[in-house]
Structures are given as C-alpha cells and as structure tokens.
Amino acid sequence: MSDTPIRLPDAVTVEAVLAGLDPASAGQDLAPALSDAFPGFAFSTAAVDDFYWRDARTVLAADGARLGDHRAWVERELAAHDGDLAAFWNRYRDSGLCFTEWRGTAAFGFAPTGPGVADFVQLSFGREIEVLAGPVVDPSYRPWSADDLLEPSWVQREPVTDAPVLAGPVFRLQRRSGLIHMRSFLATRQRLEREEREVRRPELEARATQEVGRDYMKETPFLKLNPEWFDLVPREVRMFQDWQRSSASAQRIFEHWAFDIKDYQEQGRRKLSFIPRPLKMPAERLLGEEGGSIHRLMERIEAVDAEAGLSFAWFFLMTHGHWVDPDIGHAIADGLRAGRVRLLDRDARVLLDWTDNRYIF
C-alpha cells in the first residue's frame, strides 16, 4: 500500500482541471482528468437533461469582432442616445450587430469514498456552449423599456438549436455546492432541521389542541399529540436510509441518481436541500389507473425495474414525485396488507413505512 496521503477533491483543483480540458473532447476527458488529479478517487460522470442559459452575453460585430459585455454595451449605447429607446432601436435594428449567449445542461461527477450509501463525493457542473443567439435588438418590435434590451426574449432558446456554436463545450463548477461529500451534507441537513425545530420549542410547548364534544371541551398539549416532532428525519436523509434498507442497496445510489443541491439563506437562516435527478428517464410515466388490477400494477413496476436495471427502482422514482404516481405505492401497500401481492421483505417494510409517513420531492 502506498504511503502517499490521499488528496481530497477541492474546488480550486477541479476548476483547474476543467480549464485544461480540450472542448473538442471535454465530455470524454472529464472523468479521467478528475481521477488523475485526485489519485485514489475513481470518478464517473453523467449528464442530466436540465437546459438553462446564463446572463453572460457578448456583443459581436458583423465582422466577428467582440465588442464587450452585452449589458455594459447596451447601457453605454443607450446613454449615448440620451435614453431614447426609439433612436437606439432605429440605430441598431439593421446594424448587423448580434449577441452571443452561454447555454448549457447540468452534469455531475461522482467518486466513492467508502462502502456506505452516502460515502461519495459529488461535483455539480454546467456543460455549456456559447452560441450566436441573435441580433442585439428585435428587428420587428421596438423595445418599451431598457429591460427589453437587457433580457432579450426575441431569440429561440431550446436544448436542440441551429444557432452557430462559437465555443465549447466547456464545464463550469457550480458556485454554491459544486463540490459536496454526501455523508457530510446529510449530517448538516439533519442538524439544521433539528436546530430550526428547537428554535420553535417555546412556542410549541405553549400550544394546545382543543377537542370539543357535546358535553365537554379539553385541551391537549401539541407536543403530547406530536411526541416525535423534534426528531423529524428530513426527506433527503430518508431517501438514503430507504436505499440502504431496500434491495436497491446492491448498487450505488449515484449510479442512478444525481442530487441538485440547494444551499441558500432565508430570513437569516441557512436552508439546505436537494432535488434528486434520475440519470435514466423511464420511457413513460407510470400513472394510477382507476379500478386497475393490482396484479397488473405489479407487472408494470417490474417492467420499470427492468428498464432501470435496478431492483425497487419504481419506489424511488415514486418519491421523486413525477415518474411514478404515489397512488401506485398506496395501492401496492394495500395489496401487501391484504396478502394479495408480495415484495421482498425489506422492500415491503420500506414501502409500508413510507405509506405511514409519506415524503415526496
């Protein structure tokens, strides 16, 4: 065994790796380059169909010369026309000046750090190209405000476009939560939830629920009715716990899911969450059918698992809240309780616990 200490991934080195990629082969080179930069870590990468565009535009002259940042150029030229929008529009509607725009989709990198379900590093990127978006003004309609010029809406923005590509693809590490260790993330998410609930303890200790009958009225303390209120497990943590408890744990969670991290401040408190993103979309949604056969439902969830190449995949697609209707889970749970269908014991326990305390992303 080598005595060389393992170097943990860090954002500065990751950004240096990204800057050194050749755009012509960036997609193929990304995982090997990250693995080379951090010996001891075996990175894999995956893309997610999550199209976006950035407010990072450049004005381009007809001869291809770059005239600078789009916003700064518009503000400068508008000031030169004394803020006269009509004069600005007449000056540039046939000028041949265009603007470029960076557009992209989400991409993720993963590297295991241990055997546990949450023992991995996740990197969150944007995979971006710079395109020739369109003219600097809408040639057909005069702008009514400066915002019409600064936020151009007259160009088509679609994942598949005929717009000429000027640069890229390049990868950009997200500014916030671009690099996380999932086990640490989940621990922090649990801690923040607990702290936020503790702040409300005095209020909840003083709260009571009124129960009124024909001949009586009584009050029951809120915390007596909700003794586990301070021990709530966030849905992000529950998803990983359910994966570990279920037959899905035979495979690594990051081979099937990426996690869109949200990390922000609200009213002076840090908020932390994620939205899970399936790395392989099912061919079609699995929706509940009025009066449908429970045995037909079982055939359909087995087909979902086979398509995903993962046992119990349908359950996690259901908690995602889009690909599998939650009514499917409740129908199968009812079938389990009635002894009409069967799941693996560990999967049955997870599903029944979910129906008792449901979570959806």
Rank of each mutant, 00 (worst) to 15 (best):
Q265F: 06
H295L: 13
L310W: 05
R285S: 09
A283G: 15
A313S: 05
T319F: 02
A333T: 04
R285E: 10
D305V: 00
A313E: 06
G288R: 09
Y264H: 10
H320I: 03
I301N: 06
L310T: 00
M281V: 07
D260V: 03
E307R: 01
S311V: 06
A306P: 02
E266I: 08
F274Q: 04
P326V: 08
E299D: 14
Y264P: 00
D263K: 02
L317W: 02
G268M: 12
L310Q: 07
P278F: 03
Q267M: 14
G335P: 08
L336V: 05
G335A: 12
I332Y: 04
E284C: 11
M318T: 13
I328R: 13
L336Q: 05
V324W: 02
T319A: 10
H330M: 12
L279A: 05
T319Q: 08
V304A: 01
D327W: 08
D334Q: 15
R277P: 00
E266C: 06
D327P: 05
E289K: 03
H330Y: 15
G321V: 03
A303K: 03
A313L: 03
E266Q: 07
D260Q: 12
I294Y: 11
A258E: 01
I301P: 06
G335Y: 15
G329V: 07
R270E: 09
L310K: 04
P276E: 06
T319R: 05
A338V: 07
L287A: 14
W314N: 04
L287N: 14
H330V: 08
A338H: 11
I301R: 06
G309I: 11
Q265M: 11
R337F: 07
R300V: 03
A333R: 13
R296L: 11
A283S: 15
E290S: 14
K280G: 07
A283L: 15
R285D: 04
F315Q: 11
P326M: 11
A313Y: 02
A333M: 11
F316A: 04
I301L: 10
L297A: 14
L317T: 00
D260G: 01
M298N: 10
E302Q: 14
F315K: 09
M281I: 09
T319I: 08
I332H: 12
H320E: 15
K262P: 00
A306S: 04
K280W: 15
L297I: 02
